[in-house]
Design a protein around this nucleic acid. Sequence first.
DNA 1: TAGATTGTTAATCGATTAACAATC
DNA 2: TAGATTGTTAATCGATTAACAATC
Lengths: 220, 220
Amino acid sequence: MSKSESKAIGNCPVPESTLRRMPIYLQYLQQLSPQDTDLISAATIAKDLDFNPVQVRKDLAMTEASGRPKTGYKRRELLVAIENFLGYNKTDEALLVGVGRLGQALLSYEGFVKCGFNIVVAFDNDPQKIGTAYGDTEIMSIAKLENLAPRLGVKIGIITVPGGAAQTVADCMVQAGIVGIWNFTSIKLQVPEHVVVQDENITTSFTVLAARVNGMLQHA
Amino acid sequence: MSKSESKAIGNCPVPESTLRRMPIYLQYLQQLSPQDTDLISAATIAKDLDFNPVQVRKDLAMTEASGRPKTGYKRRELLVAIENFLGYNKTDEALLVGVGRLGQALLSYEGFVKCGFNIVVAFDNDPQKIGTAYGDTEIMSIAKLENLAPRLGVKIGIITVPGGAAQTVADCMVQAGIVGIWNFTSIKLQVPEHVVVQDENITTSFTVLAARVNGMLQHA
DNA sequence: TAGATTGTTAATCGATTAACAATC
DNA sequence: TAGATTGTTAATCGATTAACAATC
């Protein structure tokens, strides 16, 4: 069963808001100390995470786990169900272009392992870097991307180059059969319909934080 | 006029969804080539950014800019209005704790200047790093944070330490009078009511990208 | 059994989109 | 003037929350 056929697909599609809460539940369940009870109720989770208990139950209902009235959910079972729901048990391979500070940070981030994410190769245009490796990941010339990516069957590309080079890199990725681009620049990329772009805009994040601190935001 | 008294405050509070689109409009207006017309309509912006035109007009109406029927908005005027709306013309100062790869990437990110964001000092517990500087930013012992932050009047703290140290750092920041924490770890931080925490969870972002690529998401 | 907790159906709320009047 | 575009008011849509029936 490939990732695209996983549990969630047959059922109704998942709202992004629900999806975004799932890793939070997972982290919460993982950090509970082993001494804590083996059973946990939606009310407890909700209280600890500042969520609405109904929302928690609805979210968890999208996984294959089910709770039992009076007792709640089995902690371990729920944890595994969420991992399966999120496809963390299957591996997604990616390539990365731009081995600067940010690229290096991503290459050395150990948290990706837990969610089945693996950066298999990196590219840069700096001759000093080409041919070396960063951790386990080889750094190659960008010229090799177009040829190598299809052979590796990699479907996800990470762009951590300066903004000026982003569109060129994106074009190259599309040529190479990449269908999901994780874009860390603030450039709006032009890509064909079938390619998904996820923008990771650090400036936007800061803007939201500043607005919340300054009380400009609605709920905050 | 301090940031907290800026335009948006007197009026109705801003929905986060609107706020998040503002930097996108700004980037769009900035990247338009100078040859492009000096006037731009909401319809054009909407088409280029794949937004709904009514949404664009409603968003822009929250700024002090106003368009004219038949002609549209003055590009330069709109650009400045958005910058003011977002408070990019005022400076927000921050301190950063944890000068690893990610911390370094943030310290060297030049895009913060445009949005009035300035990291004035960094902290680490590595004796090798303490006393050195990264770019213009001095790296000091974490022990000095509690004393220094209030003197500098810094209100925003960035946490880029390993997860295990995150809560301790957060506690220290709260003691030092920090009221906004930008948390790059996946730990759920415990803080007093008055402190705003913005979680920047790279794993969640990846999860959303993977879900979109695999067609698990609703709209995608 | 009684009480607690789940899971579902209905109500509320807010954001997006549509319809339209105002205006240049 | 006629036509295009803004800005606002109303309708739709989806997510959150409340009410409640089912069940252990």
